[in-house]
Amino acid sequence: MFKKVIRFYADGFRNMTWGRRLWGIILIKLFIMFAILRLLFFPDILKQQFDNDEERSNHVLEQLINP
């Protein structure tokens, strides 16, 4: 069953006559999004700066009451 599913997808991609350029664009897009933007420019600030939820709560509360 698993092999059949893999073969189904592999055949599908192999026989795509119009999608090669499209797949190239998609892969470049995903690379830019996840390898460049996510890693270099978009850290999860609260996770990066605080160790646990209590610290995160405290930080946001401080921002809300002392903007």
Binding site: L22, I25, I26, F42
Partner: peptide, 17 residues
């Protein structure tokens, strides 16, 4: 679908940052 898919995930990056 293929070009548009996952462009919405960037919004989630922005939420966190």
């Amino acid at each position: 679908f293929a070009i548009g898919v996952s462009t919405g995930i960037i919004l989630e990056f922005e939420f966190g940052t």
